[in-house]
């Protein structure tokens, strides 16, 4: 008979071993996956993409920026560049690497796949916004151009990815991108967010948390050296200059105003009938279509009827039927404010 103490210790040992191997991101398996990603072709494509995007954005591109972006050594970055020059995808210009005709084509193809995949994730899956870029980084090397074309068709030939970046079409054409950096906007104006830069990841996550959404409106209150003060959805906050560079906006005319904090379905009281004003843009894909199909369109009457035994979801009466919605969904449905019930015109 095996000594129970010994058996238990062995078992714990095995568990620890498995953890070390499999713990996501830190474990050995994850490290091995990452290092196999650093295969030559993938690195070359990433370099091409970096050069392309830097040129597009008008940002400096150099061996160091490549090394930083790809998380490799400067020596390795230099080797990659010389390989690319060798296969005539890049030539070294006076202010850094420049894409050749072929290089441009390759880079556009990768960017296209990347952005289409992000659009797919945003529209057709429930993957959270903070993970789109990461996943697309992997997929961009995996799809062939036929597969990319098929994906584009399935998504309905979108022009913009969920960050607001233009998606090149199969011929390599890019719709013109509009917008100026938030750091370049003067104070006291209203603007619409047209682009949120997805790298570096930490800044992007911070922007999302602050409350920036693509297509959302903000009011720029003041800009100074320490940051830009903005207001949106009834809240005010300060954006530091570095993060502000990653937000592109389109100035709106004088007459336009920022939408007031929307009253959402969460604010409705039980038994209180209210009218729907619209569904927030943050709700997309299947979720949005299902809500529309159930009759939650502008002008629809909706009444919270009763609450679940655990507090969430809540049952609402819509078009004669009782539909249960979670609080997360209810927070995306905008309803009229009591004073607006006479006014049928709605801002936004």
């Amino acid at each position: 008979m095996v000594d129970p103490g010994f058996a238990l210790l062995t078992f714990c040992g095995l568990c620890v071993l498995l953890l070390v191997l499999l713990w996501s991101k830190v474990g050995l398996l994850a490290r091995w996956q990452r290092s196999s990603r650093l295969r030559e072709r993938v690195l070359l494509e990433d370099t091409l993409k970096h050069v392309f995007v830097s040129r597009q954005d008008g940002v400096v591109c150099s061996v160091d920026s490549i090394a930083g972006r790809l998380e490799i050594s400067a020596a390795r970055a230099a080797r990659l560049l010389s390989r690319l020059v060798q296969i005539e995808l890049i030539r070294m210009g006076s202010d850094g690497p420049v894409l050749t005709q072929n290089g441009n084509q390759s880079a556009v193809r990768i960017v296209r796949t990347h952005r289409l995949w992000e659009k797919y994730l945003a529209d057709r899956t429930g993957v959270p916004a903070s993970e789109w870029h990461e996943k697309a980084e992997k997929m961009e090397h995996a799809l062939s151009s036929e597969e990319t074309d098929a994906l584009e068709m399935r998504l309905g030939y979108p022009s913009w990815d969920p960050h607001g970046d233009p998606i090149p079409d199969s011929a390599g054409e890019i719709p013109p991108s509009t917008g100026i950096g938030l750091d370049q906007v003067e104070s006291d104006c209203v603007a619409e967010v047209v682009h949120l830069e997805d790298e570096p990841r930490e800044i992007y996550d911070g922007l999302l948390k602050d409350g920036f959404t693509l297509g959302g409106r903000i009011e720029v209150i003041s800009c100074g050296e320490r940051g830009i003060r903005v207001s949106a959805s009834g809240r005010e906050w300060t954006v530091d200059p570095v993060s502000a560079q990653n937000v592109s906006v389109r100035k709106l005319g004088k007459g336009e105003s920022v939408e007031p904090k929307w009253r959402t379905l969460l604010d409705a009281q039980l038994g209180e009938g209210t009218r729907v004003v619209g569904i927030s843009q943050a709700c997309q894909g299947m979720q949005r279509r299902r809500l529309l199909d159930l009759g939650i369109v502008r002008g629809a009457e909706i009444i919270p009827e009763f609450v679940s035994a655990s507090g969430d979801p809540v049952a609402y009466k819509i078009r004669g039927a009782i539909i249960a919605l979670r609080s997360q969904q209810a927070s995306l449905i905008r309803i009229e404010r009591p004073t607006e019930s006479q006014n049928s015109e709605v801002i936004g």
Partner: peptide, 13 residues
């Protein structure tokens, strides 16, 4: 992994 998607539940009479 993944987030919850498009929940809707009709409570029939």
């Amino acid at each position: 992994r993944g987030e919850a998607t498009s929940f809707s539940l009709e409570l029939p009479p």
